[in-house]
Amino acid sequence: MASPQTRSHVTLWDPIVRITHWGSAGIVLTNALITKGGSVPHVYLGWGLMALLLLRLVWGGLGPRAARFSAFPPNPVAALRHLRDLVAGRVREYPSHNPAGALMVYAFWAMLALVVATGLVMTGGATPMQVARDKAAVESGDWSVLIKESDGESSGEDEEGFRDGAEEVHEVAANLLLFFAALHVGAVLLESRALRRSLVAPMLLGERRK
């Protein structure tokens, strides 16, 4: 009979939050560690990541309460207070992300957007299908695609420098994403222990029961 009370403030993540969370995590890891930068699968996954991010951001505006931005506004003061509570071992439950987690979420989104945007600059905004087509053409010995491409950027060195810059940012952002991910996993473990419940299960299964 006591269970409804402990149960009621365990957040139930909806399917969109869960799908976009694990989808982005999977794509970031795969693209950072497995696929080769600039390869066709890398670009495909990048576009998939763009879709996931877009869906989650739309969901942040139109979705149910726990998923909406208004449920976890960025608030560094509250985040610090939460971290202090965590160190002291007395954390409380929040209806959505906790304040420190919320900052993490926004940092993730900013980096994901940056990684996607710089990736698009590096490929000149070409869809993965075009990238694949161009690659196939070059491989079959038709170099005209490359000529056309360098023709297109007739503004020359400016464009070139811009793309190089994008590449630098792309790499830094990707590394930051991995760093954030490690931080995030560590925080989830700490928080799970402090709250004496698994934070992973609701994100995996949307499970509400203890």
Partner: peptide
Amino acid sequence: GQRQTLTLSLFLLIQTVGMVFFVGDVIS
């Protein structure tokens, strides 16, 4: 109810992925 929301979510996901590729194509 949960199965329905999950189905609709997956449907939305597929639509969004399709949309992103379409928009890219439209722009080019």
